[in-house]
Simulated assay, not measured.
Amino acid sequence: MTVEQDITRKLTEGLSPAQLAVENESHLHAGHAGSPGTGSSHFRVVVVSDKFDGLNRVARQRLVYDLLKVEMAGPVHALALQTLTPAEAAA
Rank of each mutant, 00 (worst) to 15 (best):
V22S: 13
P75T: 12
D50R: 08
R44M: 02
G39L: 07
G54C: 04
A91F: 03
A18S: 11
E4Y: 08
Q19H: 12
V46M: 04
R62E: 06
S35G: 15
L20R: 01
R62N: 07
A21Y: 07
L79S: 05
L63D: 05
D50Q: 08
L55H: 04
H42I: 09
V22M: 09
G37K: 10
E25P: 15
G14Q: 00
K69F: 10
L84M: 06
M1H: 14
S41L: 08
T12Q: 01
S41A: 14
L84E: 08
R9E: 14
G31E: 02
S35W: 04
H42D: 11
V58I: 11
Q5N: 13
R62F: 04
V48W: 00
M72H: 12
L63K: 08
A73F: 07
T83H: 04
T8W: 04
G74P: 05
H77P: 05
V47A: 09
A90D: 06
E71G: 10
G31L: 05
T8G: 09
N56W: 00
L67Q: 03
S40N: 15
S49D: 03
V3A: 12
A18L: 09
D50L: 02
P17L: 01
V3R: 01
P17K: 01
E25C: 13
A87D: 10
A89V: 02
S41P: 14
P75W: 08
L15F: 08
P36G: 14
I7N: 08
Q82R: 09
T83L: 02
K51M: 04
D53Q: 09
P17I: 00
T85E: 01
Q19A: 10
N56S: 05
T38P: 13
M1F: 13
A80Y: 09
L11E: 00
L81M: 11
L84V: 05
L79F: 06
K51Q: 10
Y65C: 09
M72N: 14
V45G: 05
A73K: 06
V22K: 07
A59G: 01
P86T: 03
A87L: 03
L63N: 05
E4R: 13
V46W: 02
H42R: 08
H77A: 06
L15S: 00
E23G: 11
D66E: 12
D50T: 11
A73E: 13
P86R: 01
H77Y: 10
T8C: 10
T85W: 01
A30Q: 15
T85R: 01
Y65I: 06
G34V: 13
V47F: 08
K69P: 08
F43W: 01
V3K: 02
